[in-house]
Amino acid sequence: QVNIAPGSLDKALNQYAAHSGFTLSVDASLTRGKQSNGLHGDYDVESGLQQLLDGSGLQVKPLGNNSWTLEP
């Protein structure tokens, strides 16, 4: 069960990665100043990332080996 409060997208993504045990490689300029609506409930990694990114204009991309990145 994930419980991440709304706020900074950077912070939300870092909390989610730490909670879910995956690696997220992101260029900080992509997420700077963006906000997230947070995340509450049970999600697989990709669904949770998509939910956190909702409205940010960013997309999640798998890199393999439980690693992910973001792209515009």
Rank of each mutant, 00 (worst) to 15 (best):
Q1D: 08
Q1H: 14
Q1G: 12
Q1S: 13
Q1N: 12
Q1E: 11
V2Q: 05
N3K: 11
N3L: 10
I4E: 01
I4P: 00
A5C: 13
A5M: 11
A5E: 12
A5L: 11
P6D: 03
P6F: 06
G7Y: 02
G7F: 00
G7W: 02
L9P: 01
K11Q: 14
K11F: 13
K11E: 15
A12E: 03
A12R: 04
A12Q: 05
A12Y: 03
L13Q: 01
L13H: 02
L13K: 02
N14D: 11
N14V: 13
N14K: 15
Q15R: 06
Y16H: 03
Y16C: 07
Y16M: 01
Y16D: 00
A17C: 08
A17N: 03
A18K: 12
A18C: 12
A18Y: 09
A18F: 11
H19C: 13
H19V: 14
H19F: 14
S20A: 15
F22V: 08
T23H: 11
T23S: 09
T23D: 08
L24E: 00
L24G: 04
L24V: 07
S25Q: 14
S25F: 15
S25M: 14
V26N: 04
D27T: 07
D27E: 09
D27Y: 06
A28E: 12
A28G: 09
S29K: 12
T31F: 06
R32E: 13
R32Y: 13
R32F: 14
G33P: 03
G33K: 05
K34R: 08
K34N: 02
Q35E: 09
S36V: 05
S36Y: 04
S36C: 10
S36N: 02
N37L: 12
G38H: 03
G38L: 03
G38N: 03
L39Q: 02
L39P: 00
L39R: 01
L39T: 03
L39C: 05
H40L: 11
H40W: 11
H40V: 14
G41I: 03
G41C: 06
D42R: 13
D42Q: 12
D42A: 13
D42C: 15
Y43G: 03
Y43K: 01
Y43A: 03
Y43H: 07
D44S: 11
D44W: 04
V45N: 04
V45C: 08
V45T: 07
E46G: 10
E46P: 10
E46K: 12
S47R: 12
S47Y: 08
S47V: 09
S47I: 09
G48L: 05
G48C: 04
L49R: 01
Q50A: 13
Q50V: 12
Q50E: 10
L52I: 09
L52H: 00
L52F: 01
L52A: 03
L53A: 05
L53H: 00
D54A: 15
D54H: 14
D54L: 15
G55V: 03
G55A: 05
G55D: 03
G55S: 05
S56Y: 05
S56H: 11
G57F: 05
G57I: 04
L58W: 04
L58R: 01
Q59M: 13
Q59R: 14
Q59V: 14
V60Q: 07
V60A: 15
K61M: 07
P62Q: 13
P62M: 12
L63Q: 07
L63H: 07
L63E: 06
L63A: 09
G64I: 02
G64E: 06
N65Y: 09
N65F: 10
N65H: 09
N66W: 06
S67M: 13
W68S: 00
W68F: 13
W68Y: 14
W68K: 00
T69L: 14
T69W: 06
T69G: 10
L70F: 06
L70M: 05
E71L: 12
E71Y: 10
P72K: 10
P72C: 13
